[in-house]
């Protein structure tokens, strides 16, 4: 069963990238839906804690497809991790391995490092900044920007919207700053 073995290995960029891109026409054909995942966070607010804030007062039932989509993402990821994985450590650049070893990160068995992302670490300063502050910035920043990697970088640029290109450049700039200049101090904590 060679094909199963091939599927179980990590997929190269030239396979996975076009498949991700095809999500754009799939959602448009399925019912005029615009690819954009961060808006699910806004819908969750609108459903659970609208708190009379005008930004969350809209008919979220008209956007419910988006919540079905992210529920699917959770299920799909479970399927891939359970049955479509060869359970090999992630192969990354040797320079990164050396750098991360200096912070005590050397477990490559999972997609996110178990040395950093675990329940116990939530109560440490480092873990709190990475998991909780980081998550907050993702939610705050994507909504402030009006989209994330899917809504701006893929859907927006695919539709040739220059504000989405500006947003994407800023995503990358923020990431470069954080990863290279600020995170070394955080990971040393």
């Amino acid at each position: 069963m060679d094909i199963i073995e091939t599927i179980k290995q990590p997929w190269p960029w030239y396979v996975s990238g076009p498949l991700i891109g095809l999500t754009v026409p799939v959602l448009l054909f399925a019912g005029n839906k615009k690819f954009g995942i961060s808006s699910s966070l806004r819908h969750i607010c609108a459903v659970v804690i609208p708190s009379n804030i005008s930004f969350f007062k809209y008919d979220w039932k008209k956007e419910i497809w988006n919540l079905f989509f992210v529920a699917g993402v959770v299920i799909g990821a479970f399927i891939a991790a359970s049955w479509l994985s060869d359970h090999q450590p992630i192969q990354v650049n040797g320079k990164l391995v050396t750098e991360l070893a200096g912070y005590g990160i050397d477990d490559y068995k999972h997609l996110s490092p178990a040395d950093l992302f675990n329940w116990h670490n939530l109560l440490t300063i480092k873990g709190f900044i990475v998991m909780v502050v980081g998550g907050f910035l993702v939610g705050f920043g994507t909504r402030y920007a009006g989209g994330c990697t899917s809504g701006h970088s893929i859907m927006g640029i695919s539709n040739l919207q220059w504000p989405s290109l500006v947003a994407t450049i800023c995503f990358m700039a923020g990431g470069f700053l954080m990863a290279n200049l600020i995170m070394p101090f955080i990971l040393k904590l």
């Binding site: 980081g134 910035l137 920043g141 899917s150």
Partner: peptide
């Protein structure tokens, strides 16, 4: 502004919303 803040969060968590 939001783009930069999200970039910070993306690098920290290693994850965007999806």
């Amino acid at each position: 502004y939001g783009g930069l803040l999200f970039g910070f969060g993306w690098a920290l968590t290693g994850a965007c919303p999806g």
